[in-house]
Simulated assay, not measured.
Amino acid sequence: MRRYSRITGTGSYLPPRRLTNADLAAELATRGVETSDEWIVERTGIRARHFAAPDVTSSDLALPAAQSALQAAGLDAKDIDLIIVATSTPDMVFPSTACILQHKLGVAGCAAFDVQAVCSGFVYALTVADAMIQTGAASKALVIGSEVFSRILDFSDRTTCVLFGDGAGAVVLEASETPGILASDLHADGKHVGILCVPGHVSGGEVLGLPLLKMDGQAVFKLAVGVLEEAARATLAKAGKTEADIDWLIPHQANIRIMQSTARKLKLPMDKVIVTVDQHGNTSAASIPLALDAGVRGGRILPGQTLMLEGVGGGFTWGAVLLNL
């Protein structure tokens, strides 16, 4: 009998400090940077974001999100035999944020590692966990996206610092006799490194380069819309499905314009798209599981429905997962 995997619980967490566009504009004004609620909303659809306190790490945000997902699945942390954390803002150079989270969950022994695919990270991590469950390498997995992007923002650049926020989202993925994850499609193209990156690193105890986010917004937009449609269509083809089978599109929450363009290309109305970018901005690898949890807990996403998850991020990476909840 073939072995499948299914999502059995979702969870999320946003740090308490919430900044509206007006709040952020007031803070930026003290640095001599001008922006406004109208300017941000018109270009991005973002109205607020959450920033973690200075001493709060990605594993700190991941912990309550993971605990919430475990509770929803009716499991204890000791039941988990695989932990994958998708993050571009790890607690340390090493060990992995997943290992740190494992200790905070009070468990030991199971495999734990990070996946770094920036805003596509959760889609990548979910695909890896699904493959490990299908092969019998794991039976119950925690898959988490967690980010503290506020740490790597250049607050003198209004074109990027208004876009991002901090947060975490998690799912429990369990072995199943019936299909949950139906198909996935992952890609990367390193020639686009320069359009979205943090071009700095640590060497000899010093930071070399610039450890702040840099982005060519127009280039990212143009690339994102095209590859998201391609990945979605490829995933549907692998599963033997069409756009009409999608109950909910849950895209990476980067920019409302990218989300609207993708929905149009897939012939989906916006009332079939889960949109949370207005409330938490771009949380990179955390954005898809945050949106998924919001849809589930808000009563919109129901058991048995078919969901298309898709993300695109620096690398450049992109991918999609089609699943039955």
Rank of each mutant, 00 (worst) to 15 (best):
S12V: 07
S12H: 14
L14I: 12
T20Q: 09
L24I: 00
I40P: 01
E42A: 07
R43F: 09
I46Y: 01
R47G: 06
R47P: 04
R47Y: 06
A48I: 09
D55S: 03
V56W: 01
S59N: 14
L63I: 13
A66W: 03
A72V: 03
G74L: 06
L75M: 12
D76Y: 04
A77V: 13
K78E: 13
D81K: 08
T89V: 02
F94P: 10
S96T: 15
L101I: 09
F113R: 15
V115N: 02
C119L: 00
C119F: 01
F122D: 13
D130P: 10
M132W: 15
M132N: 12
S146A: 15
F149M: 11
R151I: 00
R158V: 02
L163W: 01
L173Y: 05
E174A: 10
S176L: 06
E177I: 07
E177V: 09
P179S: 08
S184T: 15
H192S: 09
I195H: 09
K214L: 00
M215G: 04
V220A: 07
V227S: 05
A232Q: 05
A232N: 14
L236K: 14
G240L: 10
T242P: 15
D245I: 11
I246K: 15
L249G: 11
L266I: 11
M270F: 10
V273L: 05
I274S: 09
H280A: 02
T283P: 00
D293C: 09
G299Q: 12
G299H: 13
R300T: 08
P303F: 07
Q305K: 15
E310V: 10
G313E: 00
F316R: 03
W318K: 09
V321D: 12
L322H: 10
L323W: 14
L325F: 13
